[in-house]
């Protein structure tokens, strides 16, 4: 459905994308994760034909995106900064986008009603967009991309700047769209929990290069199998006592920050560690696996070459 082969894109002396190769199958949801300036938006701009690659090939739904505007007929693209004229109502915005996307006059009202329902804005359809919250505006943006039943959805940091409720509402809509259609979705985000919730696969991009790509389980495995047990106490002395308890154990790494102590150990040893803490009286106990966050941090700090063996 979507394929980049050895794509390079430069802006002057800056290499935004460096030999990127990536493919996404039909119906799949790919999370594209990277720091600011990693190349995510540049990649999207190539996919929708806003930029030409300096080298390599790009194909979306079998179309070369640089071939006029044809690719945007089949792609729903929600740019990061997409906004709408505050003086227009949501229905007017959708009517305009439907017309621009070639939805016939007769079919327009039905389509608009359906996407309003899908994104949960039916009750607000005739309100001016200027009165919308950020979350509602983002859902309206998603509605504009769904009007012509696209084959591919490209969502560039769709939940950036939203409050937790807005993020949850937006992700609910994405899940609904995924369940109801066979649309292929590529979503960029900094929020790794979103990737865990929405995506089949994840690609980590850094410095214009795809550092790793795989299923969630494959990428999580990059982080290794270390588990962190975090305890907080009412008194700093209690935390220090726990820290010293593990000082002589090379299989457990402890760090004490005031009244908080972190003990990191192998996944298999976590119950043993918890058992040794049974006599303590912590205020809170938290056990966390590194997951995607750990994998992301490791990819950024260590690069792919060192991890190649670990990831498989």
């Amino acid at each position: 459905m979507l394929e980049l082969r050895n794509v390079t894109k430069r802006y002057g002396d800056v290499t935004a994308l460096d030999g990127v190769s990536l493919s996404v199958e039909a119906g799949e949801t790919l999370g594209l994760v990277g720091t600011n300036g990693a190349g995510k938006t540049s990649l999207f701009r190539l996919l929708v034909g806003h930029e030409l690659p300096d080298s390599g090939t790009v194909s979306v739904a079998g179309i070369d995106p640089t071939d006029g505007t044809r690719v945007r007929e089949r792609v729903g693209y929600l740019p990061e900064q997409a906004n709408f004229e505050p003086s227009l109502t949501a229905r007017e915005v959708l009517r305009f986008h439907a017309r621009m996307r070639g939805v016939s006059d007769a079919d327009r009202p039905r389509r608009i009603a359906r996407v309003l329902e899908t994104v949960g804005l039916r009750e607000d359809a005739d309100r001016r967009v200027g009165g919308f919250s950020n979350g509602m505006t983002r859902r309206l943006g998603l509605a504009t991309t769904l009007l012509a039943s696209p084959q591919v959805l490209l969502l560039d940091e769709p939940t950036a700047g939203l409050d937790p409720q807005g993020v949850a509402a937006f992700n609910d809509v994405i899940e609904r769209v995924r369940a109801e259609t066979d649309v292929t979705v590529v979503v960029t985000t900094h929020v790794l929990s979103e990737v865990e919730r929405l995506c089949d696969r994840v690609a980590i991009i850094d410095g214009g290069e795809i550092q790793t790509v795989g299923t969630l389980a494959e990428v999580r495995a990059i982080a290794g199998d270390r588990v962190t047990v975090t305890l907080t106490f009412d008194a700093d002395a209690d935390a220090a006592a726990v820290g010293s308890q593990f000082e002589t154990d090379p299989s457990v790494t402890t760090t004490v920050h005031g009244s908080r102590v972190e003990a990191t150990c192998h996944r298999d040893a976590v119950f043993d560690v918890l058992g040794r803490l049974a006599d303590t009286d912590p205020a809170t106990v938290e056990v966390s696996e590194p997951g995607l966050e750990g994998a992301f941090q490791r990819v950024l700090h260590e690069g792919t070459a060192e991890m190649a063996g670990d990831a498989t």
Partner: peptide, 17 residues
């Protein structure tokens, strides 16, 4: 103006030059 407000990006996402 639309570029600063972000409405231009939404227009450029449409299938039109």
């Amino acid at each position: 103006g639309p570029a600063e407000r972000g409405t231009l990006d939404a227009l450029f996402a449409l299938p039109v030059p």
